[in-house]
Design a protein around this nucleic acid. Sequence first.
DNA 1: TCGTATT
Length: 471
Amino acid sequence: MNGSEPISIHPESGNMKDQDAIKLFIGQIPRNLEEKDLKPLFEQFGKIHELTVLKDRYTGMHKGCAFLTYCARESAIKAQNALHEQKTLPGMTRPIQVKPADSESRGEDRKLFVGMLNKQQTEEDVYRLFEPYGVIEECTVLRGPDGNSKGCAFVKFSTHTEAQSAISALHGSQTMPGASSSLVVKFADTDKERTIRRMQQMVGQFGIFNPAIALPFSTYSSYAHAQQAAIMAASHGGYLTPSVAFPATQIHQMGALNINSLPPTPMTPVSGEFHHTLAGLSSPPANITTSAVPSIVTPIVNGFTGIPHQPNGHPAVETVYTNGLPPYSTQSPTAADTLQQAFTGVQQYTAIYPATTLTPIGQTLPQPPQVIQQQQQREGEGPEGCNLFIYHLPQEFGDNELMQMFLPFGTVISSKVFMDRATNQSKCFGFVSFDNPASAQAAIQAMNGFQIGMKRLKVQLKRPKDASRPY
DNA sequence: TCGTATT
C-alpha cells in the first residue's frame, strides 16, 4: 500500500488477458501524460488489458510511472524489448522504463548490495567479479550526480540461490585498493529498510533546524499527509515532487526504530515461489551481455545498465502539478476545520523536524482536541497528572514549538521552555500542561524517548510541588 | 555504502 490509487483505462469488452500475462512497470513518464496519451504508444505491441497511471492517493498527483498489462504475454515481451531504455519521452531526461513490475517477481531476494568497492571499478568489473556465481540480470554501480562511483553497486542474480552463493564466496573476501574495509556483499535492502534508511538520513540532515524547509505545509488533514509533505520536501531539498511517498505504516515502523534504535528484523526472503517472468519466460542465455537477447529481462545497455548517468537536474516544480491541484498550499489555512487545526501544530513541527515526527504517529494517535487554545504561555498549571516535564529539547525550541509538539495529544494549557537568563539560550527543558491526565499520558507514551537529531526526549510527569525530595 | 518511480 503506497499512497496511490489506480485510475485505469476501462477494460474494453473482450480483452481477457492470458493466464501468463505479465504486468509491466512503466517508468519515466512525463507527468502530463495520462492513460489516454500513453495508450497509442503501447498499443502498437498488442492489445492492452489494463493501463494504470500511478497517482498519489490523496493529492492525485501523477507519480511519473504506470502499470501496463497486455492481453498477451508476448506483447509485453515485445514492448519491453522495443521500448525499455530505447526512447525518451518529451520532457524527460532519461529513457522510458518498461519492465516487469515488482509484483511479478519480487526480485529483492536475489538482489545484492555490494559495498566497499573501489570507486574506479565499473559495471563491467563488478560483473566479472560476480559472473562466476550465476546469471546476472542486472549490474549497476551507484554514481553521484557527477558520474563518480559511490563505491557500491547492485547486482541482481536470476535466483536467490545464486545470490546466496555470491555472498558466501565474496563477502569479506578481499579489500579493494583504496577501500576502507573488505568487500561487502549482502542482500539489498527491502522496501521497508529503504524507507527507514531514507528517514534516518533525513534525521541526520535535518535534525538541526533548517528554516528553508519550514514553509510550505499547512492544508493537510492527516498525520500521514503532513509527514509525506515534510518528507518529500526534505528529501528533495525543499522541492516538492511526487517521487516519494511514505505510507503511514512505514512511518510508524520508522518511529519504532528510532525509539528502540534497533535495526529491523531482516525479512526472510520468500523462497520456493518461482516466477514465470524473466528467466522463466524466454530463458535468457547465461551471457546477457549480448544485446540481442530475446528476453524480457531488463535489457542491459552495452552489457550493463546505468553507465551513462547523466546529471539530472531538479524536476521543475511547476511540472509537478499537472492536475491543477497543488498538493500543498503555501498559504496558511484560513478557518480550517477542527481536525485540520488540530494537526497544524504537527505540520509545523514536522516541517522543522521532518523525520522525527514519525515516531509518535500511529503509536498513540490521540484524539484531536475539540478546542485548541491559543494561549501560549500562561504560567498556569494543570491539575495533578496533567503536567509534563520535558528534557532534551532541541536548542531551538521555544515555548511555541514545545506547545506545537504536544498539541496533538490534547489541549495544551501552558508550555514553557526554561531559558538561561544570562545567555537567553534555552536550557533544553521545559513544562507542558494539559487540561486532563489522559492527554498527558498519551503524550508521555508517544513522546518519551522520541528522537530528535542525536537526542531523545525525556517526557515524564512533573513532580508535584510538594513532592518529597529523594534526598 | 542501498537506485527516480512499484497499485
